[in-house]
Amino acid sequence: MPTLSMLLVVSAALFCIGLLAALSRRHAIFILIGIEMMLAAANLNFIAFWRFAPQPAPPTGVMVAIFAIAIAAAEAAVGLAMVIAVYRHFRTTNVDQLDQLKG
């Protein structure tokens, strides 16, 4: 049987791969993919902590994960819509060229 820490290491790895995608890729969609990965890693942690808690535990982890999935879906929809809107406006999805907020 794997221990809780093994699961946590897996989810930490997933989180960092998501971070890598969000930090390193130039294409805006990759940033969204990375964020979705990080959210999935967090969900994995919720479920893992619930499963390894002293039993019987109330299914709080499960409920939070369900809500997190719903919110992540909303985030993905808005994020992708923004990618399309930005692309229409600037004719690019390269985040390096999107620096209108520069101080």
């Binding site: 794997p2 221990t3 809780l4 820490s5 390894f52 039993q55």
Partner: peptide, 8 residues
């Protein structure tokens, strides 16, 4: 954190 899960 090095624990194994119980039956649920």
């Amino acid at each position: 954190l090095s624990i194994v899960p119980q039956q649920i």
